[in-house]
Simulated assay, not measured.
Amino acid sequence: MGTQMDDVQIIDVNEDGEEEEAPVMHRSSLGNQDLGFIRQTAEEILAEYGWHLLFLTVCIIVLIQYLSKKRAIQVSKRSSNETAQDPALIVRRQEALEASRRRLQEDLDAKAAEYKEKQKKLEEEKRKQKIEIWESMQEGKSYKAKNSSQAEEASSSSGVLKPKSDNKLRGSGYNPLAGDGGASVSWRPGRRGPTSGG
């Protein structure tokens, strides 16, 4: 594109056959002169309004991004509205919710029935214990004694022997802190007062 041609000399021939020299024409380069003008104009505009153009470009980019996000949000809202307004989908969701509620209610009812049954058994056992206590009191026996004898039977049946406690000292009313043990042995608290020493 930017090729240059050499100067061309044109020779004119008369009718007589004599050669006449025509003026030499110089051809300039075939480069596009319009581009140079545009380049010069662009440089002048950038030099004068460069910061304004940069600011305007940034504003346009931010505006485009904002509008694209807003459009994406609107599209997603439309799609959600379309699915929400689909009656078949709404009916299916409600049926699924009802089924899950029914399952949860059945589980809750089953647990409540089990709890009631346990409570009835506990109340029955308590009632039987009260009856046993009342019967043992009518016979003149202590209920605790009956329970302790049952516990001893259970422990002896399991093979574990309990050591017998030595109640000789307790039976005589011996208390080492009270000083009742004998004439030669008694306990007294220490004297209170300032300590001697330095």
Results as ranks from 00 to 15, higher is better:
Ala22Cys: 12
Gln150Ile: 01
Arg39Val: 07
Ser149Met: 13
Glu152Thr: 15
Gln129Tyr: 08
Met25Gly: 08
Gln65Asn: 14
Asp34Val: 11
Arg39Trp: 06
Glu43Leu: 06
Gln138Phe: 04
Gly31His: 06
Lys69Tyr: 04
Ser29Glu: 12
Ser158Tyr: 03
Ile64Cys: 02
Ser155Ala: 15
Ser158Leu: 05
Ser149Phe: 04
Val58Lys: 12
Leu122Ile: 12
Arg101Ala: 13
Val58Gln: 14
Asp34Met: 07
Ser29His: 11
Ala145Tyr: 07
Ser155Asp: 10
Lys130Pro: 00
Arg92Thr: 03
Asp12Ala: 15
Asp86His: 09
Gln129Asp: 08
Arg71Pro: 00
Glu117Arg: 15
Tyr115Val: 03
Arg39Thr: 12
Asp16Met: 10
Gln85Ser: 14
Leu46Ala: 05
Ala112Ser: 09
Lys144Asn: 14
Ala151Cys: 06
Arg102Gln: 13
Glu82Val: 11
Ser142Val: 00
Gln138Met: 13
Phe37Pro: 00
His26Ile: 13
Asp34Asn: 08
Glu98Cys: 12
Lys69Asn: 14
Ile38Asn: 06
Glu19Met: 06
Glu135Arg: 04
Arg92Ile: 01
Ser156Cys: 11
Leu67Trp: 03
Val62Asp: 14
Asn32Lys: 03
Gly140His: 01
Glu43Phe: 01
Glu153Ser: 15
Ala112Ile: 04
Glu98Gly: 06
Ile61Tyr: 02
Glu95Ala: 03
Ile133Met: 08
Ser76Pro: 00
Arg27Leu: 08
Arg78Lys: 08
Asn14Pro: 09
Ala47Val: 01
Lys146Val: 02
Arg101Met: 10
Asn14Trp: 00
Asp34Phe: 01
Ser155Pro: 02
Ser157Pro: 02
Glu125Pro: 03
Glu48Ala: 05
Val24Ala: 01
Glu82Leu: 12
Ile11Tyr: 10
Asp86Thr: 05
Ser100Asn: 13
Glu15Pro: 04
Ala88Thr: 08
Leu46Ser: 11
Trp134Asn: 14
Lys116Trp: 02
Leu46His: 04
Leu97Ala: 14
Val75Met: 03
Phe55Asn: 13
Ile90Met: 12
Lys118Phe: 10
Lys70Tyr: 04
Arg127Cys: 12
Val75Asp: 11
Glu153Gly: 11
His52Phe: 06
Ala145Pro: 01
Arg93Thr: 06
Asp34Thr: 14
Lys69Met: 07
